[in-house]
Amino acid sequence: MSDFFGTTTADTIATWIAAIVTLIVLGALIGERRVFGWSQHLLAGLATGFLALIALTEVIGPRLVQPLAADPTGRPELWAGVALVATAAGAPWLPRQLSMIPASIAIGALAAFALGGAVIGTLLPQIDASIVRQGGSLGTTVAGASAAVVTALVLIGFLHGRPRGRLVTTAAATGRWLLIGGLGGWLGFLIVSRLILLVDRIAFLLGDWLGLGR
């Protein structure tokens, strides 16, 4: 049971509506596309409405509006923040020279965090973890070495667009085959993940809505 609902009348109505929209979306399986399409539009409206709501009530309100309302002149930097938010929010309708200011801040921050995070958080620790260390049993060492070889081959296959030289070409080709096999494994995980979701929706209809199997 999803347990998203309580026991009040509003919760009972919510359960019924949730069941109806679940059936509408499942109706796509029998080719009922029109109502299904409307449910997608409703989802888009609700999701974007929620995004706007949290941006307003949990970011812009507490960080800018409320401090400014309490002391409009005490913290002038907050007015700069208001201008920045207004520029970002109005970006689709403002001149490009102006709209690129918030975009530049976002891109600069993203690039810095991506570079720092990738090198410090992933590259160095993961390369370190790939290195085979002595001290374990022979089997552990062999398994570690084999894993390191697989990792290296996948890396070569992933990064080399047009490998040169016979050795690198063979390594890149082997790496690509390993990569496809790994992605195949991931596809299996994806299928199971989606199945769990489908079963959960059926459980909602039968359990939460119809009250069967409790």
């Binding site: 949290i54 941006a55 970011v59 976002a106 991506a114 995070g117």
Partner: peptide, 11 residues
């Protein structure tokens, strides 16, 4: 609550 900006939010 919510912090936007993904990586910037985490930092």
């Amino acid at each position: 609550g919510f912090i936007p900006g993904a990586e910037a939010g985490l930092v």
